[in-house]
Structures are given as structure tokens and as C-alpha cells.
Amino acid sequence: MNRKPRRSFRQRLSEVLESLPFLAPLLVFLVILYGMLGWTLYVSMANWVGTAPNYEFAGLKWYQMMFRLDRFRVDMNNNVKWLAIGVLPTVALALFLAYMLEIGSVKRIEGYVRTLILYPVAMSFVVTGTIWSWMYQPDKGVLNTILRAVGLSELAGRYTTNPATATYWLILIFVWQYLGFAVIILQSSFRTTELQEMVEAAIVDGASKLRILFSVIVPNIRGGILILVSLLLISALKVFDIVYVVTFGGPGYSTDVLALFMFIATFQQHLVALGAGLGMIIFLMALVIVIPYTIYAFRKWFE
């Protein structure tokens, strides 16, 4: 067991002291974060209803209530939709666009497209959500007005006012907003010297463009894709503003998500304990996402 020679106390002390300036800030914030997480867990098992804090222990009462609510079931469904449909198409679309800009474009077009799809990144969902709610309005909204003007009125849809499909239209806003960001990340990871050389070689070998994409590029930008997927997953799980601004969870609560319900339960319904419980469910979902990512990142990091 004792492979390393035992270090003296002084050596250890000086090592700790040396690492302290690096670790201290990060540790402080982690302690605050996990402390508050524990606090939330406790609140979720307390009897806090109304504005005044109440830490009287109530066990799993609020969780039992939560699992009975139909709204919670709808929320879980919608959150899964967000995670799946918000992330995968964005990555696929971004991959296609980034590749297209790399192989097939004129320099000026590339700059133009990048600026074009990047500007939403600088905007908040409070703004883009408002605009998209106008795009979607079925009677006088932008999209249907255009469709009718070009004689395609049968394509005019109900968008976010149809409970069955409303969430998908909300997710589309998310894809729209994050596409530019995704393209930038992927495009940058294309541009390593090794990869460029490999692509050149493949071209010389006469490989088709699609083959180059899937056999040469994708396997070599796994890191970039991983970072992109994880950033998108975080954003999709956190989604709150789009729903808050565009539908406020409606029609009824058909587009509600956990993050919005947490907000409504805590601040509108004054059921703070229930809100804390919903917060813990969001945390558990984050854990489920985080496990595969962390394993992968952990291996790469400490290889």
C-alpha cells in the first residue's frame, strides 16, 4: 500500500498552504451551494406554508402531495421533451451548419451567417419570448399572416394555443436561440491542425462529404460535442423564462415545466415546502444527466 515515501508533516502543511489560494474561493462557493441544497432539502420536509418561515418537520408529506398532482406528471413529461428535443436537433442542425460553413462557403457568407444566427445569444428570453409569442399568434401573428399572404393558409397553425403541441413550439424558440452558439462551438473544434490534415487526407482519398463528416470529423470532435451537449442540457433543464413569457404554462398547465411550477408553488401559491420539493426533483433530474457526463469527463480529466 505504501508506494509513496511518507511525507513529513511540514511537507504536507506547506503543500496545503500552497494549494489554499487556488482552492479557497472555489471551496467557499461549493460550501455555500451544497449548504443551501441541504437547506432546500430540509425545507421540502418542513411545513412551510405562507410567507413566514416554518421549519416544523413534516416528513414526506409534500412529496406525497406532489406525486398526486396531475400537474407534476405533465411537468415531468414536458421536462423530458425539453431535454430530448431541445438538445439533439440543435446539435444535429449545428453540426450540419458548421460543416456546411467549413466546406462549402464563400468567406463573406460565413461571417454573415455567423453574425446572423449569433445575435439571439446576446438577447434574453424575456425579449425573444415576447417576439415569438407574436410570431405564433394564430389569428394575427406574423407566421400565419405570412402563410395566408402567400396562399398557404391551410398550413396556418394554432401553435402555442394547442395544448397537444404547444411545448414543441416553445422548444423551437430554444433551438432558434441557441443555434448560433452551438455552431460557434462546433466550428471552433473543427479547426485543429490535426483534424484539418485528416480531412485533407480524406479528400485526397476521394471520400464523400458525408463520409468525411461522419467518419473523420464527428469522432474527432467528441470533446466539443460533449461540451455543447452538456451546456444545452443545462439550459434545457433550467428552462423557465421562455415558458414564463410565452405561455405562462398554458393552455391550462399543458406547457408547464418543473422550474416554472417551483416558482408558482413558492411565490404564487405560497407553498414554500412544495416549491422546495420541486427544487429537489429538479436536482435529481440534474443528477441523472450529470452522471454519464461526469463519468466521461472524470475519465478524460484524470486519465
Binding site: S19, L30, V43, A276, G279, A286, V290, Y293, W301, F302
Partner: peptide, 30 residues
């Protein structure tokens, strides 16, 4: 995180990794 290989740092790395995914709702009340 990138230079140390101690078990402590490995645990720390996981704690940091989880923190990346947390939305504010999780700690909003406290």
C-alpha cells in the same frame, strides 16, 4: 483541478460537475 491528482480533488471534481447542472430553483428559497 487540472494539476492535482489526489483523491480529494477527484471528489471535488464530482461536486463541481454536479454544480454545473443546477438551476437556481434548487437553492432559490434558502
Amino acid at each position: 483541478l487540472s494539476r492535482s491528482r489526489s483523491p480529494f480533488v477527484r471528489v471535488l471534481f464530482i461536486l463541481v460537475g454536479v454544480a454545473l447542472y443546477l438551476p437556481y430553483q434548487v437553492i432559490l428559497i434558502p
